[in-house]
């Protein structure tokens, strides 16, 4: 079975149930989790990614392409994530940020080639030597997207990645992310409080409410 499947994923904080989700997301499909801030929607991504804060208690199984990943180390799960901030490593150049993500199975000159190709793909040709801090918000977002895709994840987790972009860039980056995710046949989970994001994702939507 391909895609991402969540079976009885329950997350609670001090005995209070925050969410209870059973869903399957097909490759290229998406699930949008909506809700006001503070409702605990990001904890779902943290649970899938393997970095949920131990103050939360969680149960349920996460299966990725038929493999149970619930007990795996975060680095072995293949869960690429994008946060609100692009979080480009500030001590590395743009190119080094991308090379960090290229799997070790790709070797030698092929690595640089892969990295440059990724930059070209998002219109940032020749940016590899640049200091990430000198890029615009939209450029940073594009580098962050390419970085996560280069690592060849099996699922894409989006934690409100468009919320800090200004309005005109926002739809542009959003379209880019979903196009790329579809093209690479990745199941995607988007956490957001923005209706437009949900519409753009275009698939199943779950709404969490503050009781």
């Amino acid at each position: 079975m391909t895609g991402l499947s969540l079976q009885n994923v329950q997350i609670s904080l001090q005995g209070k149930l925050l969410l209870d989700i059973s869903e399957t997301i097909k490759p290229g499909g998406s699930l949008t989790v909506m809700g006001p801030s503070g409702v605990g929607k990001s904890t779902l991504l943290a649970y899938i990614g393997g970095f949920l804060d131990p103050v939360f208690s969680a149960s349920g199984t996460v299966t990725l392409n038929g493999k149970d990943i619930t007990q795996l180390l975060p680095q072995s799960r293949g869960t690429g994530i994008l946060f609100q901030d692009p979080l480009l490593f500030p001590h590395m150049s743009v190119g080094e940020n991308l090379l960090f993500a290229v799997p070790q199975t790709i070797k030698g000159a092929q690595r640089t080639h892969t990295m440059e190709e990724a930059l070209n793909r998002v219109g940032l040709e020749g940016y590899s030597e640049r200091d990430p801090a000198t890029l615009s918000g939209g450029q940073k977002a594009r580098v962050a997207l390419m970085r996560v895709l280069l690592s060849q994840p099996s699922v894409l987790l989006l934690d409100e990645p468009f919320s800090k972009l200004d309005a005109d860039r926002r739809s542009q980056i959003r379209d880019l992310v979903f196009t790329e995710a579809k093209q690479q046949n990745l199941p995607t989970i988007l956490v957001t409080h923005d209706e437009e994001d949900a519409i753009a994702a275009g698939d199943k939507i779950i709404r969490l409410t503050q009781d």
């Binding site: 943290a46 680095q75 690429g80 994530i81 490593f89 960090f100 994840p153």
Partner: peptide
């Protein structure tokens, strides 16, 4: 900011690699 670590894990980096790099 721990999100750098989660980000790096998501990119497949090991704990040691995250620490050193």
């Amino acid at each position: 900011d721990k999100r750098y670590q989660f980000m790096a894990f998501g990119l497949g980096a090991s704990s040691n690699r995250v620490f050193w790099k």
